[in-house]
Amino acid sequence: MTRETVVNAALTLGLLIVPMWALMADEPFIITLATRVAILALAGVGLNIALGLGGLVSLGHAAFFGLGGYAMGILASHAQSYTPLITWPVGIEGTTSMPLIWLVAVLAAGLGALVIGALSLRTSGVYFIMITLAFGQMLYYFAISWPAYGGEDGLSIYLRNGFPGLNTLVPIQFLALCYGLLAIALILSARLAASPFGLALNAARQSAARVQAVGLSPYRLRLVAFVISGMITGLAGALFADLNRFVSPTMFSWQTSGEIMVFVILGGVGRLFGPVAGAAVFIILEHVLGGISDYWHIYLGALLLLIVLFARGGLIGLLAGKAAHHG
């Protein structure tokens, strides 16, 4: 067992113990915080596939987070107001079923990632950052100016969407759902990294010329990774909207993209549990420091600076040392 495995196990244990304690101590707010950690970590797991494995510095992942959020908001608002989503060419109703919403969110985010990726992956470096940022902002301003779904004010959903067999309004049950999805995403992400695709994607990050010389297209590898990455972040967006029972254009904003990136960098770029550690620390800091000062971001900034300067592997790197090379 490597040190990283131990750190990951400890993190998992922490994520399980805290809500159990909160349940017994009757602290529903802590459970909600844990749910936030799980959802934001999930968004980070998505970004980590593009950023950590693919080396794609996307400053536009809010686009997928927002697409997932609006997929939920639009479907649920139609179900809530008993108005059909579309009537032509076929009648489609809204829904409050989480599995269905997740499916739509993942598909919408995947399609968005396909379009954005196909265009932006033709560039690299700072241009790629700028183009992904621009796409995110485009969707942000579109959401603001689209009155049908709340425009600038966003959309409120009165009841949390349902999942068969669960009462999602009970915080611990919704948390369990989010944990379940995060666990699945982590397992898929680990398997992806070790798969032939992961090997090729990882090599394309390090030397595109090498990958081409063995007859593989770095562009196509990156595009597939970008779509998978966007899908996972989109799912997180749908959950985030459900957690708050509210969707707003802020989900699309570049600050959101930045925060998702902060989770990944704080926790450790390319490390499996990096986004989990990053999101957990982010939420703890927000909660603890936020109580002391409204300007808590300045401390977050200082921490981020220290991490980037002195611990390139993020928190996981700090605790578990350099990445292991499975050989």
Binding site: P196, F197, L199, A200, L201, N202, A203, Q206, S207, A209, R210, V211, A213, V214, G215, L216, L221, A323, H325, H326, G327
Partner: peptide, 23 residues
């Protein structure tokens, strides 16, 4: 032009993967 962070074997596997025709 090699994947420097990867192992020697992983670099060779990449070639084998390319030879197989799809990743």
């Amino acid at each position: 032009a090699l994947a420097m962070e990867d192992t020697v074997l992983q670099n060779a596997l990449l070639g084998a993967l390319g030879a197989r025709g799809g990743a």
